[in-house]
Design a protein around this nucleic acid. Sequence first.
DNA 1: CATGGGATTGACT
DNA 2: GTCAATCCCATGC
Length: 206
Amino acid sequence: MTLPAAFYDRPVLEVAPDLVGCTLAHGDTAGVIVETEAYHQCEAACHAHVGVTARTHVLFRAPGTVYVYRSYGIHALVNLVCEAEGIGAAVLIRALEPLAGIRLMHERRGVAEEEQLCSGPGKLTQALGIELDLNGTDAIAGPLRVGPRPPEWEEVGIVIGTRIGITKAAELPWRFCAAGSRSVSRPWPPGFTPAPRRRVAVPREG
DNA sequence: CATGGGATTGACT
DNA sequence: GTCAATCCCATGC
């Protein structure tokens, strides 16, 4: 099951929180989206703010298009293009809770903690094997697939904060986190408290 | 054509 | 807390 193009053909500030709890899959790996940020051509932090260029033209394409770019020369960051064709807007996927292909994610990431496999925008693309060759592909029928919220995520709470790692338009509260998820990236937004770490019963003396 | 700045992460003091 | 790695591309000469 894949979300239709119409899901993305709405204001990016509606799509970004609605994507929290949905699933993202690539190859044999998948996760539940637990953190997103909205970007729109009207504000300076959005790559589309400079208009249509070789880098940004994908942001102006049809809703549901995948935008992947390289950050700091090292990491690939993945976005889903929103709003009508001709408007530059997208949702940055910032964190996932791993669902499938977890063994492969561990191999790609080289970390032991499952919470750290996809707890950042560069981490999740590494875990899912998302690279720049996916830029311009289609999130409805392409290799990257976005599915609706599983039943247990239907009533996920959203904690809102300001966007991370930007200098321009940094005051806008356009970051959306799944309440309680331990896979949300740092720093946590105000009012966010992670659910208690799952405990393993340990026999004690006494 | 040269330059500079990132929507980050991990290692280190 | 600091800092370097390293690629793409927007910008300016």
